[in-house]
Amino acid sequence: MFVTSAYAQTAPAAPETPAAPGTAPAGDTHAAPAGEVHTETGVAHEGEHGGGTFPPFDATHFPSQILWLVITFGLFYLLMKKVIVPRVGGILEHRHDRIAQDLDEAARLKSEADTAVETYEKELAAARSKAHNIAETAREAAKTKAAADRAAIEAELAEKLTAAETSIGEIKAKAFAQVGQIAEETASAIVDQLIGGKANGDDIKAAVAAAKTEA
């Protein structure tokens, strides 16, 4: 309803001014050469379709519109096809590649780290078992050595014991051997004291020997 009223405003206005509505009258009054262009269009309007031709349906402008559309859109299409599309496509592809590459790199580093951890743990386990072995061997060796030492010391001690026993036996035998003489000397001294004279040595000897055998 608003539109139709607006239309009604222009419809009667058109016959009043013979030229096209808008700039054409201004051009007419001011400068003839500049106005010619406008009046031409105005005349074309009137000649073919009458004063109220709706501009978008005015066929006189169609060739010019098509020509300039072909020129401008053709150029635009060429520019898009040759420059912009490959460029933007390249940017996007480059970014995509870069991200994929970075992800690959990250995955590679992760697997490397995993391998390193695995190797480390393996080596740690190996070192631990090796240390255990060394300790075991050392313990064994120490035990054997201690046993051997003890055996040697025991053997030595036994030897020394035997030697001591032998020497004690010898000393004892020697002592026993001297016992007769000491007893004779002691007995002769005692007899001397008792009888106040010299006792016969042979008698004492015999008496001691008799006592000895009795004992």
Binding site: V3, A6, Q9, T10, A13, A20, P21, G22, T23, V37, H38, E40, T41, F54, P55, P56, D58, T60, H61, P63, S64, Q65, L67, W68, T72
Partner: peptide, 27 residues
């Protein structure tokens, strides 16, 4: 006038073979 905005005006008049190929405000 709400139709005036669609009016085509020539800026550089070009005519080839009797057909109007002018450089207009639309161009």
């Amino acid at each position: 006038d709400p139709i005036h905005q669609f009016q085509i005006s020539k800026i550089v008049p070009i005519e080839i073979g009797g057909i109007d190929f002018s450089f207009t405000n639309a161009s």
